[in-house]
């Protein structure tokens, strides 16, 4: 049984993470802990009671984000899912976190090394599911002989391009607006012509 103090401590930790998520999604990852403390309505020192360094806060936030993506993708993916269903599931998950993810991919190069590793591991979950789907599709001989990492990186490259340059394509959610078009045409690029 948790004490009142423990419950309060966990609630404050969650409040800081939820607020950091919101502030980073709006301002990008150059936002300061002062901004996060203000938005969470806690003192600046409180943040460092829960997270010893800014880097630690960032890593905890990215790990939580990664496990949410992991959970959603896993629940959406079924053993016999098609390539189209999987790609739609991936985009649907990203739409839920679109503003945060957009800032994350724009700022990733300036984040600490450990944060980059968490980001790689987030993508590993996606590449695992995609490679399983592709293997199944290949058994049906419908997919061109392209190395798996090029298939994966082309998909990420495509959606990351639309996200980081969303001003070119949409005034609202670029993924929502272009989801069907991106999926349909990406699959066309991979599939062999049928006779």
């Amino acid at each position: 049984m948790k004490t009142k103090r423990q419950i309060q401590k966990e609630a404050t930790r969650k409040l800081i993470l939820d607020t950091a998520y919101r502030v980073y999604a709006e301002e990008g990852f150059s936002a300061t802990t002062n901004q996060i403390a203000k938005a969470a309505n806690v003192s600046h020192g409180t943040i460092f009671v829960h997270f010893p360094t800014v880097e630690n806060l960032l890593i905890c936030l990215l790990e939580r984000f990664g496990s949410e993506i992991n959970k959603h993708l896993h629940l959406l993916s079924e053993k016999d899912e098609s390539l189209e269903t999987f790609l739609a599931a991936h985009i649907d998950v990203l739409i839920r976190y679109e503003d945060f993810y957009k800032k994350l991919i724009s700022d990733i190069n300036s984040l600490p090394q450990d944060a980059k590793f968490v980001f790689i591991n987030i993508q590993s979950v996606v590449s695992l599911h995609l490679s399983q789907v592709i293997e199944r599709e290949k058994e049906k001989k419908e997919i061109k002989e392209i190395p798996m990492h090029i298939i994966f990186n082309s998909w990420l490259g495509l959606i990351h391009y639309y996200l980081t340059n969303s001003y070119l394509f949409s005034a609202e959610s670029v993924l929502t607006e272009h989801k069907d078009e991106l999926i349909l045409n990406y699959i066309k690029l991979l599939e062999n012509e049928r006779n």
Binding site: F117, I120, Q123, S124, L130, H149, F152
Partner: peptide, 18 residues
């Protein structure tokens, strides 16, 4: 990780350990 994401081996090793 190398097969599905094409990462450099040294980077992949650190990411996996992490």
């Amino acid at each position: 990780t190398i097969k599905t994401q094409g990462l450099d081996k040294a980077i992949a090793e650190k990411a996996v350990e992490n």
